[in-house]
Simulated assay, not measured.
Amino acid sequence: MTKRHIAYLACTTTLVGAFLGTTPASAAHQTLVVRPGESIQKAVNAARTGDTVVVLAGVYHETVTVRTAGLTLRGMGGLTVLQPPAKTKSAPGKLGRKATPTCLSAGNGICVIGARNKALRDVTIAGLRVTGFAKTGVWSMGTDRLTVEHVLADHNGQWGIGQEHSTRAVFRDNVARSNGDAGLFLANTVQAEQGALDSKGTLVEDNRFEDNRIGLTVRRLRNLTVTDNYAAANCAGMFVVGDENKPRAGALTVSENRVERNNKYCAKTARLPYLQGTGIVLTGTEKATVTGNTVLDHSGRSPLSGGIVLFKSFVGATSEKNKITDNVLAGNSPADLVNQEATKSGNAFTGNSCRASKPAGMC
């Protein structure tokens, strides 16, 4: 646990004491407290818009679904642990054709669910550890202004934290570690082929991504900022992914991140060659700005290996009109900057501090 998370835990403990001691019963917004052995879901179901559910330190074997706007679900940092139910598989089960998967049957820990035509607004998930779920620790869909902060998502089968079809989210001060695929996965939609979604300013800030397959994946999105994050010991640090659908993915900023030593080996998939030694990748994106990042000590022989890499998407869509500027790169092999796109794609490499590039002449 980082110093930031320890400080947050102390602050949360103080706040819970204040809630328990001073909140009047007649307050418009209530604080519902969940103790070990009690049901988080029961408290969430009882909460109304604007209420806070505080989950005290302990291990809770359940999944939780949030469908109430303006709800805050807050734990005591790493001391509040959510794990799969002990006697029930959290892996996806066999559902009937018309059945809707629950958070549990889909393999997720916490689900924040809105609707495509009516977004669930202003939900906050904070101060929890979510671990051991078959698919995703914290999953959200159809939300607006969701905040996920001070969450530790580790050892989940697919994604630590994931989101689709949502806008104006904030992911801040989280740790995503040792998850099967991405530590944080953000997408327009997971199952359908569609053009990139305007995220309307989604912010990914001050997170740590360690020992995942990919630290952060941003897929088919526009208008978001990824800044001041740390990615290390993954197979690849950060992926920004697009394809031939329109509007194109891109028009986003990746800035001031520290990405280093992402040299873990991960086998190839249907969409990607094997991964190893990959810092930041743009594939099939346009008009993205990658600036002010520190990218160090990556080494591999994958087609995606290198410090900052531009690579055609798996369907051959090019990356065009991107700006790679003012980054500090060192110790990356086969090169600090790797551009595998056509020379007429309009990608600009300027002001970067580096020693080697492929092709030569970009440093």
Score class of each variant (00 low, 15 high):
residue 5 H to F: 05
residue 9 L to D: 08
residue 12 T to S: 13
residue 14 T to H: 10
residue 17 G to A: 15
residue 17 G to H: 10
residue 19 F to S: 08
residue 21 G to E: 08
residue 22 T to L: 05
residue 22 T to Y: 07
residue 29 H to F: 14
residue 38 E to R: 10
residue 38 E to H: 08
residue 39 S to T: 06
residue 44 V to T: 08
residue 45 N to T: 11
residue 46 A to Q: 15
residue 49 T to L: 05
residue 50 G to R: 04
residue 57 A to C: 06
residue 59 V to P: 03
residue 62 E to V: 02
residue 64 V to M: 06
residue 74 R to P: 09
residue 78 G to H: 05
residue 78 G to Y: 10
residue 81 V to Y: 04
residue 83 Q to G: 05
residue 86 A to G: 00
residue 87 K to W: 07
residue 87 K to N: 14
residue 97 R to C: 03
residue 98 K to C: 15
residue 101 P to C: 08
residue 102 T to S: 15
residue 102 T to Y: 11
residue 107 G to E: 02
residue 109 G to T: 01
residue 110 I to A: 01
residue 120 L to T: 04
residue 120 L to Q: 00
residue 124 T to K: 06
residue 124 T to V: 13
residue 129 R to Q: 14
residue 131 T to N: 12
residue 132 G to T: 09
residue 133 F to I: 09
residue 138 V to H: 04
residue 140 S to C: 14
residue 140 S to V: 07
residue 145 R to V: 08
residue 145 R to N: 15
residue 146 L to C: 02
residue 156 N to I: 07
residue 157 G to T: 14
residue 164 E to G: 11
residue 165 H to L: 15
residue 169 A to V: 05
residue 170 V to Y: 01
residue 170 V to Q: 06
residue 175 V to W: 07
residue 175 V to Y: 12
residue 184 L to H: 03
residue 184 L to A: 05
residue 186 L to K: 05
residue 186 L to A: 02
residue 187 A to C: 14
residue 190 V to D: 10
residue 196 A to Q: 10
residue 200 K to A: 15
residue 200 K to D: 11
residue 205 E to W: 00
residue 207 N to Q: 01
residue 209 F to I: 12
residue 212 N to T: 02
residue 214 I to L: 11
residue 215 G to P: 00
residue 225 T to L: 09
residue 227 T to D: 13
residue 234 N to Y: 13
residue 239 F to R: 07
residue 242 G to M: 02
residue 244 E to V: 05
residue 257 N to F: 03
residue 258 R to D: 10
residue 258 R to A: 14
residue 260 E to V: 06
residue 268 K to V: 09
residue 275 L to H: 06
residue 278 T to C: 06
residue 278 T to R: 03
residue 280 I to K: 09
residue 282 L to Q: 00
residue 286 E to C: 01
residue 287 K to P: 00
residue 288 A to K: 03
residue 292 G to L: 07
residue 295 V to R: 00
residue 296 L to R: 11
residue 300 G to V: 14
residue 301 R to S: 13
residue 302 S to E: 07
residue 302 S to K: 01
residue 302 S to T: 03
residue 305 S to T: 07
residue 311 F to K: 04
residue 313 S to G: 06
residue 314 F to V: 12
residue 317 A to L: 00
residue 322 N to L: 08
residue 331 G to N: 03
residue 332 N to P: 04
residue 334 P to G: 05
residue 341 E to R: 00
residue 347 N to K: 03
residue 351 G to S: 15
residue 353 S to E: 14
residue 356 A to D: 13
residue 358 K to H: 10
residue 359 P to Y: 15
residue 360 A to R: 03
